[in-house]
Structure formats: C-alpha cells, structure tokens
C-alpha cells in the first residue's frame, strides 16, 4: 500500500483498530512461508485470540506485530503505526509476554519492574511508585526482594504480565500465556486477563488450547499453515458448523458405511469418520439418539459407544482442516 490515499485509509483504520494488517507475510530465508497474506483487524478494548496448532504462524505473527520479526510482505499497523517504518514507536505502545520466561535473572522481582519502568522513560520516583502499585495488584508484594529464579511458574507469569503492563501499553501481546502453567495458575491468569479486558485493555493472545480461546476471547482467528481459516466470535464459529449436537459413535463394522447410513437420518446435517469413530453433526432434534442407534444396527454394525457433545472450537478446527489441533 502506497500513496496518500492509502495513508489516510490507514489512519482511519487505526482509529478503530489497534491492530490492522493487510497481506502480512513472512517468508523465512530457506522459503518457509510462516505467515501468508494475513488480514487482521483488532478493535480497541478487544481481547482477540489467534488459535492454531504449533507451526500455524501464530508466534511469527506476534513477532511481526512486536517488531521482532521483519515482514517480507504486506503491512502491519499497531496503534496506527507501521511496524516496519517505526519499530521504536511501536515498542513504546506495546507490552509483550513472550512464550518463554524472559525475566531479568540478575535482578530482584521489584527491580524487574523498576528498571522496565526506567526503560520506558519514567523517573526514579515514578518508577518506584509504579513498581509498588504493580507488586500489590499482582500479589507479588511479599516477594518483591526475591530473586526471580525462586518464583513459581504462576508467579513468574504474573510478573511477566505486570512488567508488560507497567508502561500502560495500548496493546498487550501474550504468546501462549498458559502453556506450562498448572491448572490453578491457568485459571488465575484467565481471571486476570478478564479483569484487564474489563478495564478496556486491548489484548492479543495466541493459544493452541480451544477452551482458552473459547472462554477468554471475544473473537478468534483460527490459523493453520500461515493463513486465517475462519474468524469470528467463538459462538459464531461454532454456529458455522450448522450443528448444535455432535454424536460420536463407535461401532464394529464398516465405519464408512455407517457414516453414509447415519447421514440419511432426519436432522443430521453431515457425518464423517474421525479418529476411529463416526461423527454425526445434527440440529437439536427430539429422539435423535435412538434413531441413530437404530439406523446403525440396520446398517449391519454393532454400536459399542455413543457420546453426545456440543460443538467446540476444536470441532470447528477439525471441520476446517481435517486434523487435530494437537497434531
């Protein structure tokens, strides 16, 4: 995009969107197309999730938006600023919680916050006040003088979030924030991100956990192989399956035959064979289950197990790609 019209357009987009990308592409030397023509818009105050398996391009996308990865094509604006043209101005406006623990191991918990504030231009007294405020809010006050190596995983993660927020960034980026956390810390982090969202913080996070995206995010972009496959609110994405119920049936016999047979049952919108079982996607129809079992018996198979679930983002992902998120 060049020319003044495009620049005006960009400006206009920026007012509405804290993050805007057009055709954003990263091809690594060697030819790996990690991100391929990404168009993304994240509104101010939104909590937005990039959901996809490892290698989908989520981390590369965050890398480009946070100035660490140099795009090879397209445009990315953060808070209206082109990440390629003025990376320093972008860095001033973002807070980043990377996938790995990047806390300053040579400093104490408190000093980690203190010096981060100094990097972002606060005076000594401003930095001290801000560090204390954050220690209190993130329940780290008692550990202020501790070495960061002594923190538990959950505490270290809280400190990383506190540090990323210390300079009140326009956008908070979190790359796989709950990977490696124990269930309790995971819940606590979800709660914290919920609070930040309620305060109006714009958040972009990546995850390969469907439940995380489902529970936390207002909108989710499902990514695979560097592209966005679907984008919308979790409920929109689940509705896109046109199924309110998914019946998963295990049976002895030819599963392909069974899948075809179940497809005839009224109310069933589609069927497939997945992971050694037949899945029937259906609307909310009374008496569906007995009819399915009956149809299966008539098709010459013996049903060994039946489960009924509602669609999840994982089933959406599987429907889109034919593979599991964990693959």
């Amino acid at each position: 995009m060049t020319g003044s019209a495009a620049a005006v357009d960009r400006r206009a987009t920026a007012i509405e969107h804290r993050i805007a990308t057009e055709g954003l592409t990263k091809v690594y030397p060697g030819g790996l197309r990690a991100v391929d023509g990404l168009d993304l818009r994240v509104r101010g105050g939104e909590i937005f999730g990039l959901l996809g398996p490892n290698g989908a391009g989520k981390t590369t996308t965050i890398g480009m938006l946070t100035t660490r990865v140099v795009p090879t094509g397209g445009v990315a604006l953060v808070d209206g600023i082109d990440v390629s043209a003025d990376p320093v101005a972008v860095k001033r406006r973002i807070g980043v919680v990377p996938q790995t623990n990047t806390l300053d191991r040579s400093l104490s918990v408190r000093e980690n916050l203190l010096f981060h504030c100094r990097y972002f231009g606060m005076s000594g007294s401003q930095a001290r006040a801000r560090a204390d405020e954050l220690l209190g809010r993130f329940r780290l006050a008692e550990r202020g003088d501790a070495k960061v190596e002594t923190l538990s995983g959950g505490m270290a993660q809280r400190l990383m979030v506190a540090r990323a927020l210390a300079h009140a960034p326009a956008v908070l980026f979190l790359d796989e924030p709950t990977t490696g956390l124990d269930p309790q810390s995971r819940l606590a982090l979800w709660e914290l991100l919920g609070e930040l969202h309620a305060e109006g913080q714009t958040i972009l996070l990546t995850t390969h956990a469907m439940d995380e995206a489902d529970r936390l995010c207002e909108r989710v972009a499902i990514m695979d192989a560097g592209r966005i496959l679907a984008l919308g609110s979790p409920s929109e994405l689940k509705r896109s399956l046109e199924a309110e119920t998914i019946v998963t049936m295990q049976a002895d016999g030819d599963l392909e035959v069974l899948a075809a047979a179940l497809g005839d049952v009224p109310g069933v919108t589609s069927t497939d064979v997945h992971d050694g079982a037949v899945r029937a996607f259906a609307g909310r129809v009374a008496g569906l289950l007995p009819r399915l079992v009956l149809r299966a018996e008539r098709a010459g198979t013996t049903v060994t197990d039946v489960s009924v679930t509602e669609p999840t983002l994982e089933t959406v992902f599987i429907a889109l790609t034919g593979k599991d998120l964990r693959e």
């Binding site: 504030c117 990097y119 972002f120 405020e133 300079h167 009140a168 913080q201």
Partner: peptide, 16 residues
C-alpha cells in the same frame, strides 16, 4: 489500576 498512569512523554530512546 488507571489505564495510563504515566503517559510517558520521556519514553525516548535516550531515556531507554
């Protein structure tokens, strides 16, 4: 926590 407690006008490269 206020959203922008210290609008950092001094967040210059030199300060960093």
């Amino acid at each position: 926590m206020s959203r922008r407690p210290v609008e950092a006008p001094r967040a210059t490269a030199l300060a960093a």
